[in-house]
Amino acid sequence: MLTPFVELLDSPIVAINLGLKMFAESLESQGVEVCQVDWVPPAGGDEELADLLDKLM
């Protein structure tokens, strides 16, 4: 019996890519269907600001 992970690799892959587009483009160039999600870390990765944002929204 195949494990769920092997089953996943055995079927057509559809990837969801968060953030940097180059990963999506790499998969697309190999014929993989990709759903690109535009995302950046809150406050541009500034942890102090991200903490403040977390308290305000």
């Binding site: 406050a43 500034d46 600001l49 903490d51 403040l52 944002l53 308290k55 305000l56």
Partner: peptide, 15 residues
């Protein structure tokens, strides 16, 4: 916007 957000946190004692 970063400066404003920091000032907002300071004014309302958040942060």
């Amino acid at each position: 916007f970063k400066k404003a957000l920091i000032a907002f946190g300071r004014k309302y004692n958040v942060g």
